[in-house]
């Protein structure tokens, strides 16, 4: 999906990087915890959907070669973060929708999750099942 179509679908605006509106993203990862992004995303060009607007979000997107960052819940990054993203060539978009609805609309439009194979995140303790 092109970033321009994604913005149209969600009613999102380009905070910076509108010149990359024709860029394609096919995989998305939605999270507020950055270590999660670092653990689970392996491919390049992934769309990051997050409610976090700290400078670290853009740095993670940069080192992971992500396609774009989409801020949800009406969150807006600081000017310093926007300028950093512009310099690093990472498009930033902002939507007022919540993360659930954003994921839902993009999923139904054909976007698929970024996944990593063979990464065990479970606690060593076994499953605790409720009594039936």
């Amino acid at each position: 999906m092109k970033l321009a179509d994604l913005a149209g679908l969600l009613g999102a605006e380009f905070v910076t990087g509108a010149e990359h509106a024709e860029r394609e993203v096919t995989r998305a990862f939605a999270a507020d915890l950055l270590s999660d992004v670092l653990a689970m995303v392996q491919e390049e060009g992934v769309l990051l959907i997050t409610g976090m607007t700290t400078p670290q979000v853009v740095r993670v997107a940069e080192v992971m070669n992500m396609g774009a960052v989409l801020f949800v819940r009406g969150k807006y990054p600081t000017q310093a973060t926007v300028e950093y993203a512009a310099g690093a060539g990472i498009p930033l978009l902002a939507a007022s929708r919540d993360m659930y609805e954003t994921c839902g609309l993009l999923y139904q439009a054909g976007l698929r999750p970024a996944k990593r194979k063979g990464f065990r995140l479970d606690l060593p303790s076994g499953p605790a099942r409720p009594a039936a």
Partner: peptide, 27 residues
Amino acid sequence: QPGYSTAPDWARELGFGAGLGITNMEQ
């Protein structure tokens, strides 16, 4: 251990403290 974290609430609310830091370094 994956998931173990001593992060204070303020750090968790900034998106840190998932308990994956050392795991990610090792992996």
